[in-house]
Nucleic acid binder design. Structure first.
Lengths: 98, 98
DNA sequence: CCAACTAGTTTGCGCTACCAACCGACTTTT
DNA sequence: AAAAGTCGGTTGGTAGCGCAAACTAGTTGG
């Protein structure tokens, strides 16, 4: 198995999914974002976004904090150190694949 | 929606799937390969490989030619012009996303 | 001639993704 | 206080993936 192919085979599937890749890419640059912002930026519907967030949280790639903006509930998200590391490794693999 | 995210949202899902990405990456460089070579290089089992090949053929990204190596059947694969173009577009999107 | 092997396809199963619709708790409007 | 809206989660249905096992068709070996 050549090196390029090896890199593809090792891609982190949790991150590789485009919906989640968008979320992580956004969080990587802003370091904190809320649900509605992500929904707007990614164009995903709530259901899909909600389930990707759960998946990322369960993988411990993001941290979810439920709070309030005045009286309105707000879900804040940020990458964990592990999420950040995994994303960097993912990008490295991808660059090697291309 | 920012440009980076836009690029991710536009990724060609047929190519994005790691199994198929490996196949296309290999075909892009060698221009012609047979089933067993791909199976060996990618480490996929026959069933999975076979179904990815069908999917790529149906999308007209590869051309499949069934022939013989002596008396033994051999399936030869190569990228179509469309497959090549799509792969180049995919890589462009990916580079813009990173 | 019959068993075993090769190349590849199909099938069945469990898991994941996506969307739309509905739901629950709360808030604002009228 | 009834109606409508907001945030976000849950559910039901459809489609796709990955694997192993069964299958097809032809070939080789005993």
């Amino acid at each position: 198995m050549n090196h390029q192919i090896q890199s593809i085979a090792e891609l982190d599937r949790i991150i590789h999914e485009p919906g989640r890749l968008m979320i992580i890419t956004l969080l990587y640059s802003v370091d904190q974002a809320d649900f509605l912002y992500l929904q707007y930026e990614t164009g995903m519907n709530k259901g899909t976004l909600s389930s990707h967030i759960s998946r990322l949280e369960q993988a411990e790639y993001i941290h979810v904090e439920k709070t309030f903006r005045g009286k309105v509930p707000q879900t804040l998200l940020r990458l964990t150190r592990m999420g950040r590391k995994s994303f960097e490794r993912y990008r490295k693999n991808l660059r090697e694949a291309l």
